[in-house]
Amino acid sequence: MFPTHRPRRLRTHPQLRRMVRETVLTTSDLIYPLFAVPGEGIANEVKSMPGVYQLSVDKIVEEAKEVYDLGIPSIILFGIPADKDVDATGAWHDCGIVQKAATAVKAAVPDLIVIADTCLCEYTSHGHCGYLQVGDLTGRVLNDPTLELLKKTAVSQAKAGADIIAPSGMMDGFVQAIRQGLDEAGFQDTPILSYAAKYASGYYGPFRDAADSTPQFGDRRTYQMDPGNAREAIKEIELDIAEGADMLMVKPALAYMDIIWRVKEASNLPVAAYNVSGEYAMVKAAALNGWIDEERVVMETLTGFKRAGADLILTYHAKDAARWLK
């Protein structure tokens, strides 16, 4: 009882606070997302995401070198192709934009871990994550035919040099299909980071500007999870683990810290949290208006993800966070 117990004793000095800190964020926790586009010398800033750019492959390589020099161990690549079609050809073609970017980055920065986002929405003419029933304007994706596209995409990305395959389409059985495809192609050692609990969220808006992936009609609620569901997330991760996932992701992160915690408690696999575009954009907008201290808010948020159980954090703040950590 007071005055015997005085918790403030351990808060009296910055070094003492550092010594007893329970959760410590490091650059090794961070993954930086990058958007690859065709062309050369291109750096188009995404209007809704200040400081984030669509980059041609040569600029992606420059960015990858900077990321590595900052001590960030990994990037994740998203692609915006020149042309789109119903077969998502740009996703799985050997000359696809992500394939080109992965090969170039691995040649320039061999020790940087390259994760390939394995989804189809950026590459389909309708903006959905797979095949649609002809004439269907609801956005209901045909699950099993789409698995074949995802399998081809994953193998193509691995051939191009991707170190980790990250399927994000939330198709039933997608981890098993991709694992089978990778193994048959000789990529038994390529891990799968599954977007195991990906919610149909309003926080994705700026990403769709960056990746040019807004659905032309309907929405993605028939395959992404309902924001009100938590038990379903555990069901999804259990299925993905059984199908061969090596790591699990929760997306978004900020409104889903309880899900990060539940997934961490229910699994012994590494857990990633995706600090998504809308979360980033809100912080940047408030900071640019002088309403918040950007560094304090970002570092507090990223630490919160880790405290909730995230082993890895995908964030557009990664470069800034790495500088602040140094």
Rank of each mutant, 00 (worst) to 15 (best):
L182Y: 08
D172H: 13
A107Q: 11
T89Y: 05
A162Q: 05
L16F: 11
K159F: 05
W261Q: 12
D69R: 14
H128D: 00
V155A: 12
L16A: 14
T214L: 15
G309Q: 03
T153A: 15
D85R: 08
S56G: 10
L150G: 01
K251F: 03
L77W: 04
T23S: 04
K65E: 13
E295Q: 13
E62P: 01
G278Y: 05
D58P: 00
T12Y: 06
Y32A: 15
I75M: 09
Y195W: 09
I115P: 06
M170G: 01
P73A: 15
R18N: 06
V283F: 11
A253R: 10
A322P: 04
K235G: 02
V57N: 01
S156Q: 11
F207A: 07
A273F: 05
N143R: 11
T301V: 12
R6L: 15
V134K: 14
V37S: 04
R262C: 05
A322R: 06
D87W: 10
G290K: 12
F174V: 13
D189W: 11
R17L: 12
A177T: 08
A88K: 08
I292P: 01
A321E: 01
M282C: 06
M282Q: 13
M299T: 02
A102R: 05
G304E: 01
V67P: 00
Y316C: 00
T214K: 15
E40I: 06
A91S: 10
N44L: 14
V98G: 03
K198I: 06
K306A: 05
D58G: 06
P252C: 12
I260T: 04
K65H: 03
I192N: 06
Y123R: 11
T124W: 05
G186Y: 01
E294F: 08
G135K: 12
L312Q: 07
R221Q: 11
D69L: 10
L70M: 14
A154E: 00
A197H: 03
I292T: 03
E66A: 13
G181T: 09
A281K: 08
L239N: 08
H126I: 10
K151I: 03
G278P: 14
V109D: 00
